[in-house]
Simulated scan of single mutants.
Amino acid sequence: MTTETKTAPELAAEAKALFDAKIDEVKGIATDLQGRMAKGEDLTKSAKELADQAITGMNEAKARVDELEQKLARRGSDDGALEVKSYGAQLAESEQLKGYIDRGAQGSMRIELKAITSASGSAGGLIVSQRDPGITDMPKRPDVILRDLVTVVPTTSASIDFAKQTVRTNAAAPVAEGNTKPYSNYGWSRVSTPVRTLAHLAKLTRQAMDDAPQLQGEIDSEMRYGLALAEDAQILLGDGTGENLLGMMPQATPYALPTGATTPTTSIDKLRAGVLQATLALYSPTAFVLNPIDWYNIELTKDAANGYIFANPLQMAGPILWGRPVAATVSMAAGSWLTGDFKRAATLYDRMTVEVLISSENADDFEKNLFTMRAEERLAMAVKRPAALVKGTF
């Protein structure tokens, strides 16, 4: 078995055995010197040589133990893991050894070395586990952005009522003096949109919170993120049934190529035609909403010389098309797109911003040492100008 594959107790035992052997050698040298001195021999030179041998032997032993100690450190013990000094350090710093050498290695010597193994024979204080205080979470979507596209206002009501213009017949024209003026026709209808609640719950144990205080903050963050995902999907795709919001895609105007416009041949062309459609409806589109796959395909568009149209791959380029930002989100189905004047088209009403509460008084939580976390928000969605939004497919 090599040193690299030995366990910590085996390495410690080997170190102790090595020093025991060297101490026995020193004792043997001292006993020999005492016997020869008793016979009247001149030992000045011999004592020096033997002392040099003893020091050399101890230095070799210390180097060996230092090597073992380094190998042991590489096995996972940190800088402060050693509860007692190693055998090499204890022996090198021993006053008994220094005095013994100063006396010419004459007489006997006894050195007490503290054990570096525990009573059970394990590595004891040599190996201490290291705790990383961080918590590794799963990846989060970086594209929860649709709230930023629309107008957001607070409300204190349980429903939103607004007047929506439904008729505009403009009869304005030049009129000769004395003739009857033409009447224009305008009409509005009352629309009501209810405030809906987005919410979810999570359980966590009292023990988990006590052992990892930051866990509560992590769960808080996860629950807020979960609400943001649900909100993102509702703003874009909510169908208005049950407790769902009525989102933008269900109310947007279907794409129809304006009369006289050149037929688009690429995805980029079709998006430009969508901008034209909204522009002819008297709105100014502010962005595009695409699936990341569709935006990827557009970014890879090349010219006849096989060069990228949008950017140099070695440089960072913002997601912009036809001078308008591109919001690439997986909430949008691949192959579909949306453009329009989002600020004018839709309004998001915040009745209650995200709230995260924690309680031990839910169901049998108290008996089971559990906590229940609840995250919720209340909001309403109103698409007031559907013509300002144009949707289509590639």
Rank of each mutant, 00 (worst) to 15 (best):
residue 143 D to P: 04
residue 253 T to S: 15
residue 250 P to A: 05
residue 84 V to D: 03
residue 69 E to Q: 14
residue 84 V to N: 07
residue 25 E to Y: 05
residue 223 M to A: 02
residue 380 A to H: 01
residue 89 A to F: 05
residue 349 Y to K: 02
residue 182 P to C: 04
residue 223 M to S: 08
residue 138 M to K: 10
residue 209 M to Q: 12
residue 75 R to T: 15
residue 133 P to T: 08
residue 169 T to A: 09
residue 22 K to F: 00
residue 179 N to A: 15
residue 262 T to E: 03
residue 364 D to I: 12
residue 326 V to N: 05
residue 13 A to T: 09
residue 249 M to E: 06
residue 132 D to E: 09
residue 174 P to F: 13
residue 29 I to C: 04
residue 270 K to N: 00
residue 378 R to A: 14
residue 336 S to K: 10
residue 381 M to A: 15
residue 81 A to D: 10
residue 274 G to H: 00
residue 274 G to F: 01
residue 174 P to R: 02
residue 81 A to Y: 01
residue 89 A to Y: 01
residue 293 I to W: 05
residue 158 A to K: 09
residue 261 A to F: 02
residue 259 T to G: 03
residue 378 R to G: 12
residue 329 T to V: 11
residue 286 T to I: 01
residue 101 I to E: 06
residue 140 K to G: 06
residue 172 A to I: 15
residue 388 A to N: 03
residue 294 D to W: 05
residue 224 R to W: 01
residue 15 A to T: 07
residue 293 I to V: 13
residue 285 P to K: 01
residue 125 G to D: 12
residue 222 E to H: 12
residue 195 V to R: 04
residue 42 D to R: 11
residue 213 P to V: 09
residue 375 A to S: 13
residue 362 N to K: 05
residue 257 L to E: 04
residue 40 G to V: 14
residue 364 D to A: 10
residue 327 A to E: 01
residue 238 G to M: 14
residue 39 K to Q: 15
residue 157 S to Q: 14
residue 369 N to L: 08
residue 194 P to A: 11
residue 171 A to G: 08
residue 223 M to P: 04
residue 261 A to D: 13
residue 300 L to F: 02
residue 20 D to T: 11
residue 10 E to P: 04
residue 67 E to A: 15
residue 151 T to N: 10
residue 150 V to E: 12
residue 148 D to C: 06
residue 50 L to K: 09
residue 388 A to I: 06
residue 18 L to C: 05
residue 329 T to R: 04
residue 112 E to L: 14
residue 339 T to F: 04
residue 341 D to E: 13
residue 244 N to M: 13
residue 188 W to D: 12
residue 169 T to E: 13
residue 195 V to P: 02
residue 246 L to Y: 11
residue 382 A to R: 08
residue 132 D to L: 13
residue 364 D to W: 14
residue 169 T to F: 01
residue 184 S to L: 08
residue 218 E to T: 12
residue 274 G to Q: 00
residue 291 N to F: 10
residue 37 M to S: 09
residue 173 A to M: 12
residue 226 G to K: 13
residue 127 I to W: 06
residue 374 R to I: 12
residue 304 A to H: 07
residue 170 N to V: 14
residue 357 L to I: 02
residue 97 L to P: 07
residue 325 P to G: 03
residue 127 I to Y: 10
residue 212 A to V: 11
residue 188 W to P: 00
residue 323 G to A: 08
residue 238 G to R: 10
residue 84 V to E: 09
residue 279 T to E: 04
residue 349 Y to P: 02
residue 277 Q to I: 00
residue 270 K to I: 06
residue 320 I to Q: 11
residue 311 A to H: 14
residue 80 G to Y: 05
residue 285 P to D: 02
residue 11 L to E: 01
residue 283 Y to T: 01
residue 135 I to C: 05
residue 385 R to G: 00
residue 374 R to N: 14
residue 251 Q to W: 09
residue 335 G to F: 13
residue 390 V to N: 00
residue 378 R to I: 08
